[in-house]
Write a protein that binds this DNA or RNA. Structure first.
Lengths: 126, 126
DNA sequence: GTCCTTTATTTAGCGTCGCTAATGAGTTAT
DNA sequence: ATAACTCATTAGCGACGCTAAATAAAGGAC
């Protein structure tokens, strides 16, 4: 929990986007265009919460809403060009910070973290 | 981040107290009575935020405010008897949940997590 | 003793992010 | 065509973080 708070603060301090917003951008970047409902499901959030997040990203010009071709109830969310830059820049900064931190560890410690990652990943899903 | 969110949700679902409130109770349990300012410093939060948290805990009857003996500006926060029960019960549930999860891992995986814990702890502080 | 600064907490008010309940709009089944 | 369902949105609440300004008490200068 402490580590999560630390990382969140680190991000908040450097980026003008919240960890939440970045997570949505990242998901869209990996997944391609998605509907509000799909995004909500992936981020484990209720649809109204995702509507608000998408509205905010839309206001910032990072995301586009279009209505689905065959089903006009659903709105499809996709990244703008600006978003790709923001994502790349954010990733760059995150990696720089992480590299800096990880360089202070011994190789054995880094290996331990590498081993632990998939286990923690699994715990987070069950 | 995902794991942190998962754990937070797990706690929220079972306890009627937020992770935040529980953290303050835990700190008081470990440290003994503390002032608002000290609590804010330990939880890495601004004093106004801690004032609100303490007010809420006070309303729930889990915490007591008393004025300091020699300096009447500071308020000393201490646990009530009810709080000790709540803390013990919460810990019991947390451990039950964790044991259940950890039993699904191999001994080697558990050892990896044991090794990783202090490293992550260190990363969260720097 | 009075004035001034510093310190501890609180109040007021803003922003984010989660939720549920209810509404609007579009689709599908009968 | 009408009923039932689904997706997104709106409205409104609660928890938590923050800053700036107010209040209250200490402590020092003179």
């Amino acid at each position: 929990m402490r580590l999560a708070r630390r990382l969140r603060n680190e991000r908040d301090a450097r980026d003008d986007l919240s960890a939440n917003h970045l997570a949505v951008l990242g998901t869209l970047s990996r997944h391609g265009a998605m509907t509000i409902g799909e995004l909500a499901a992936v981020e484990k959030v209720q649809p109204p919460s995702m509507t608000r997040t998408v509205t905010s990203l839309c206001d910032k010009g990072l995301v586009r809403r279009t209505t689905h071709d065959s089903d006009r109830r659903v709105v499809v969310v996709s990244l703008t060009d600006a978003a790709h830059n923001v994502i790349a820049e954010s990733r760059r900064r995150k990696e720089a910070w992480l590299n800096h931190r990880l360089r202070e560890l011994t190789p054995a410690e880094r290996q331990t973290l590498r081993d632990a990652a998939p286990i923690l990943e699994r715990l987070s899903q069950a």
